[in-house]
Simulated scan of single mutants.
Amino acid sequence: MSDPRAALEAIGQLPDTEIDIADAALQLARVDAPEADWQAARAHLSGLAREAVLLAAEVPDDDLSAQAGALAGLLVGTHGYEGDTDSYDDPANANLIHVIERRRGLPVALGILWLHTVRAAGWSGHGIDFPGHFLVALSGHGEQAVLDVFGGGASLHAPDLRALVKRVEGPKAELRPGLLRPMGARAVLLRLQNNIKLRRLRAGELKGALACTEDMLRIAPDEPILWRDAALMNQRLDQVAAALRCFERFLVLVPNGDAASRVRAAMDELRSRLN
């Protein structure tokens, strides 16, 4: 397989619907953990896909409940995947290779495995960027089944979702339009990597956080917030020329507005350092 960073850049040029979400997460994991056995992880993903094809032959296309049960039987029952409640902040929980090795991970990392299996089965599914907790939805025939993959694939109904949003946002929070909006593959991958970036920032690993942001930009080269974040990190590392390049790219994507004005002011201050 090609260099993982080159693979990420190729993924960055694909339309969202053509992204193989599990393979993309595998490339990100290879960059993050170059010593890990990515070939074994890839073989496991291929095995899951084959098992998903067999599942699909036994489950009606219009029975979302049966699909959810079959997926849980495969991923949780057969392969033992579960949410890591004991060491939630362990960076391994956001690295797909390590998640496959340990059979434990964050909601979004587990969700990628579920979405990979859903796609291989020929069913329809997507991620949900729910506040504080990534979810997976199966859809079809005008219906949707929302699943908590961190909780073994449990089906969540309106009272469950209401309780979840209150737990995250406080007792006054309520369900509102947009909370169950589908996420594309690229957005799911960015949420996965954002877990790594935030953990590195909290640990004071600024160079590592910048490297993670640069990998995110490889798969999402038109994401202006990431260019701004990269610029600010380069600025804190006193890498002035790199910071200016990132700010310039931000302005190509966001040429007007308050954010653009603040970026231009920051660029003027950086240029003064060069003089």
Rank of each mutant, 00 (worst) to 15 (best):
G111M: 07
I112G: 02
I112W: 04
L71A: 00
G80C: 11
I100Y: 11
G80S: 10
D90I: 06
D84G: 13
T85I: 15
L106D: 03
N95M: 05
I100M: 11
N93G: 12
G73P: 11
L106M: 07
H98E: 14
A120D: 08
T117A: 02
V108D: 12
Y81W: 07
V108F: 09
G77T: 05
L106P: 04
A92R: 15
A109K: 05
S87C: 14
R103T: 08
T117Q: 01
L71G: 01
G77K: 07
S65W: 02
L75H: 04
G73I: 06
R103P: 08
G111K: 03
D63V: 04
L75T: 03
H116Y: 00
L74F: 00
A66C: 04
A70C: 07
W114V: 14
I100L: 13
R104A: 13
D84Q: 12
Y88A: 12
R103I: 07
G69W: 10
W114P: 09
R103Q: 12
G73C: 10
A92N: 15
D84S: 11
L110V: 04
N95D: 15
N95F: 06
L75D: 02
S65F: 00
A94W: 15
S65Q: 03
V108S: 11
A121M: 05
A120Q: 08
V76Q: 10
V108N: 10
L74M: 09
D90S: 08
A121Y: 00
H79K: 05
A94V: 11
E101C: 03
I100K: 11
H79V: 06
G80K: 08
V108I: 15
A120W: 08
H79I: 06
L96R: 09
G69F: 10
R104C: 07
G77S: 09
I100N: 12
A109C: 06
D62H: 05
I97R: 04
A94H: 13
Y88D: 13
L75V: 05
A109H: 05
T78V: 13
A109I: 06
N95A: 04
L96F: 02
A92I: 08
A94D: 09
P91S: 07
T85F: 15
L113A: 04
A120T: 08
A72G: 14
D84L: 13
G77F: 06
Q67Y: 01
H116N: 03
A121L: 07
D89V: 06
D62A: 02
G83L: 10
Q67L: 04
I100G: 12
A121R: 01
V108W: 12
D63K: 01
I112L: 02
N95G: 04
S65A: 01
Q67G: 04
D84A: 12
A70R: 00
A109T: 15
